[in-house]
Design a protein around this nucleic acid. Structure first.
Lengths: 275, 275
DNA sequence: CGCGGTGTTGACAACAGTCAATTACTGTGG
DNA sequence: CCACAGTAATTGACTGTTGTCAACACCGCG
């Protein structure tokens, strides 16, 4: 899988096939130790990448779900259009991500999926089948795929918290921290810096802002020397302060459990007198 | 299952056991036709309801997930607390809903779960097992459970769109329409009116508002005679106008497919010149 | 009767969207 | 090499929305 096969239907190969395998291998290895047979399966998948041009819909809301695929290069998103013309991006899909998380049942989704950049995907059918099986041939792939599905849900929760309860800067910082973590799992982060091929227009639809306000927020974070976003490159200048600003907490169960004081709803004392 | 068994650990029985069975049966029947054996299984489950007092945590974020349970009476919610003391409710859990949607793998969730009212739940273990099995003994239960999991994801998408891109009134109206639909599936809606046992404080944390703004929004909708919320009872006065206001679209695949003009991201023309 | 929780209201300030214009960057063709 | 067009980023002015604070009304309950 280290050779680059002829790719006649791949106008601009974003990355070599070996890069595709690397993404898959790194992403799965982040959750589980794979056997040689499982590695080989990923290698086989990586050889049959399919190209998708940028800004093209991969799935239209309400349609019958196509066979599942996994991104090996490029970014995509899941989004919804409102009658008034507004768009909300539900989630960003990065290399290593499954495009349709819905694996339990083949029902149409209320969200469309579109490529945000040039995109290359491979079939995820074997992974889905492994994860659905009670006694899978490839237990490592099965487990990792289930973990990824769980992580997808956690990301949706994060997105809800961002949109519902965070300030502009906190929202932006939180998203950048999420991207660093996710891209880090597939080896696309280099010392708190990573490529983010999103226009401010797209960022606005992720964060629930107007384009202008995305810009204002970037300016402010830049002025305060917390992070820099420029030419599709993000640099986290002060990750610790960003985490504080964003109320960032690492996902439980993946890294070490943080023993921060957990306040329950019952004992919640968000009363007026507290301030 | 029509008799009411002695319930010593149920201080205030919200509803008889037969009511519990009714909720389960109606919810599953909304998606699939159940066999007699499957009905019997639900009946057995309904007899062993467990009581939870209001405003008590059922699950603390980061903890190891307990065995899955399904609500048969009362409301609960999944929520997250931020370091600054703010709370965001991720999703509301109504009668018929699974409390932990995460069925693929037993990993800790980043969100806590709390009862919002007096609550009664039954074990959902048989349902989870059926849904996980490739060749389940109870195919109806299996399929319905998978559909519910899918619906849970769709609800998260709706929540994201509400928080990200809808106006205050639209947000509120959208939530009320969602509740009508969900409660309608378990027979808890009576001609566009239903019980909603939520304080405005809780609504604020669902909708990402301040309490004051929830109140303002309710007032406005009431003034415009679109809906009325009073004493824990919601009345949708003009459902059609509310749907328009909320940009409401029925979920694809469940009811008839609406053939509204779908605009793709690629052909999107939300340009400046359009206005 | 007083108390605590909830709902309601008004005043004010902070935040965020809209509009419109300008600048920066890119690739194209001459 | 430059002019040009098109996209993206940036900025300022203004408006509308939403949060905060503070006070008050209502209600069930002891």
């Amino acid at each position: 899988m280290s050779f680059v096969s002829s790719n006649e239907f791949v106008p601009d190969s974003i990355d070599g096939q070996s890069g595709h395998f690397r993404v898959l291998a790194e992403h799965f290895s982040a959750f589980v130790c794979l056997s040689n047979a499982e590695m080989k399966l990923l290698g086989d998948l990586a050889e049959a990448a399919r190209y998708h041009p940028p800004y093209r819909d991969l799935y239209v809301a309400g349609a019958s779900p196509p066979p599942p695929r996994m991104i090996v290069a490029g970014w995509a998103c899941q989004y919804r259009l409102l009658p008034d013309g507004h768009r909300q991006i539900i989630s960003l899909k990065l290399p290593g991500d499954l495009i349709w998380p819905l694996m339990q049942v083949r029902l149409p989704s209320s969200c469309a999926v579109a490529a945000l950049t040039e995109l290359e995907t491979v079939s995820a059918q074997p992974l889905i089948e492994a994860a659905a099986s009670a006694d899978p041939i490839h237990p490592g792939l099965a487990h990792a795929t289930r973990v990824m599905a769980h992580l997808h849900d956690m990301l949706l929760y994060d997105q809800i918290v961002r949109l519902g309860r965070q300030t502009a800067c906190g929202r932006f910082a939180h998203l950048m921290l999420e991207l660093r973590e996710r891209l880090g799992r597939v080896g696309l982060v280099d010392s708190d810096s990573f490529a983010m091929p999103l226009t401010q227009d797209v960022l606005a639809d992720v964060l629930g802002f107007s384009v202008v306000h995305v810009n204002r927020t970037v300016q402010q974070l830049r002025r305060e020397r917390l992070l820099d976003v420029r030419n599709g490159q993000v640099v986290l200048l002060q990750p610790e302060r960003l985490q504080e600003l964003a109320g960032w907490a690492p996902l439980p169960g993946l890294s070490v459990e943080t023993k921060t004081a957990k306040r329950s709803l019952a004992t919640e004392s968000r009363t007026k007198s507290e301030h």
